[in-house]
Write a protein that binds this DNA or RNA. Sequence first.
RNA 1: GUGGUCGUAGCUCAAUGGUAGAGCUCCAGAUUGUGAUUCUGGCUGUUGCGGGUUCGAGUCCCGUCGAUCACCCCA
Length: 423
Amino acid sequence: MQLLPGFRDFYPEDCARRNYIIATWREVARRYGFVEFDGPMLEPVELYKKKSGGELVGQLFDFTDKGERHVALRPEMTPTLARMIIARERDFKKPIKWFCAPQFFRYEKQQRGRLREFGQLNCDLIGESSVAADAEMVALAIDMLRAFGLSGEDFVVRVSDRDAWKAFLDAHGSFDEAGLAAFLQVVDKMERNKPEVTETALKAFGISLEEVRAFIANPGTHFERFNALAAELDARGLKGFYQLDPTIVRGLAYYTGLVFEVFDRKKTLRAVAGGGRYDNLMSAMSDGKVTLPAIGFGMGDVVLGELIDATPAAAEKMKTWIAQRHAADVYIVIANEARRVNALGLVQQLRGMGFRVDYPLSAAKVGKQFQNAEQAGARCAVVIGDEWPQIKLKTLATRDECIVALDELPARLDSASPGFLVS
RNA sequence: GUGGUCGUAGCUCAAUGGUAGAGCUCCAGAUUGUGAUUCUGGCUGUUGCGGGUUCGAGUCCCGUCGAUCACCCCA
C-alpha cells in the first residue's frame, strides 16, 4: 500500500519535528498576545469560491459527500477566519489577535517544499489599520523565525506596499481593480521573466519597462508607509531583518496595502512565510455588514523545516529540544527476575511522581538492559536485584553508582531540574 | 496540467542483455549483575506494476503508478 501522493506519514522522529515546530509557533504567538482558534477541516466549496471567484477551485481538494454536498478540504484559513469573525464580530474586543497552526490541503502536483497536505501557522490581527499593527505583525514573523535559532544571516523579510503601486498605476491612467490585479501580476513575475516578456505585458497599461524600473530603483518617496514601518521595526532593534522590495506584491487579489514575504538569504528555497493587509475582505464576505481592517500572515511547516535543516544552529536547537522531550528519566534494570514484582511497584510509584520511567517487559540480560537504558536516553538507571530492599542507583552519563535504601530513592530524584540526580 | 530525470534488501548503492550483490541498520551470540569498541553468525527481494522484443530482461521498447527537478500556480 502506497500513501497518496503529496501526503506524509509521521513516524515518531517526524512527529517530534512537527511537535517542535508547532510548539515554538504557539509559544511565540502567545508571547505577542495572540490566542489560538481553529475551524473545521472540511468546508463547503462556496466558501472559497466567494472569496476567489473560482480561480482557485481547480487547486481545491474537493469532492461530493454522501449528502450530495460539494465540499473541500481547507486550502487556507482566511475564509474560515473571516466567517467566524463576521458571525460574532461584536463579541470580541478589538483588535482581535488570533492564531492557529492546523493542516491544510490542496490538489496540486507536489514538488520540493510543496505537498498536498501541509501544516501552516496563521496569525491575524483584525480591527486595527495603523502602521503599528503592520509593524507588530512583521516583528512577530521575525521573532517566530528567531525562536527557531535563525538569524538575520539566514532569512530576510521583503516588504512592499500595494498602495504605492496603485498610486503609480493611477498616475498612468484609469484602471479598475481587475486592472490593478493584472498589473501587479506583471510586477510579480518581473524577476523571473525575460525583460521582453515584461515589456510586452506592460504595453497593455501604456507603461514602459523603464518607468517601472525607475520606480523600483527610487522607491523612497512612494513608500511612506514603509518608512513608518521601518522606524517602528528599528525601534525594536530589528534593523537588518527586513528590506524594502517593491517587486513583492503577492499573488492573491484580496491584499490591499502592506505585503511581505520571508525568504532564506541563500534564496534556494521558496518563501518561508508571506502575508499582508486585507482591509476589504471582511466587508466583501459579509456583503458590507462588517467592516474591519485586517492583516495576517502564514508560515508553512515544509519550507521552514527545510530551512532549519539547512541551518546548523537551528538544526542543533531542534535536536536538543527533541532529545530533552523524549528522553526517559529513569530506567529500571531488573537484574534478578525474582524481584520483578518489586520493580513493578517502584515503576508505578515513580511514574506517579511524574518521572518518565521505562523498564524491560520481559527477562533480559543486564547488559542488554543497560543498552536499552542508553537508547531510551535515560539519565539514570535503578538496578533491582540481590541488594533488595536496597537498590543500586547509577548515573549513566558519569557511570557513577551507589547503593541506597529504597525509601531514599525519591529524595535522590529531583524532577524539577534537568540534572536531577542528587549526588 | 506540461516537459526532463529516476524507481534494485529497512537505508545508501553495485551488477557488458547471461546464476541478483556489497556496505550500513536490525536481531542473536562471544559477555548468566553493567552501556563503548571489536569479532562471529543470522533475517530481508514478484529488481514499483503491467505488457512487448529476445534462447535469455534489473538492463532494451511501450504503457502505467510513484519520486524528483523545471514550468504553470502559489492560499
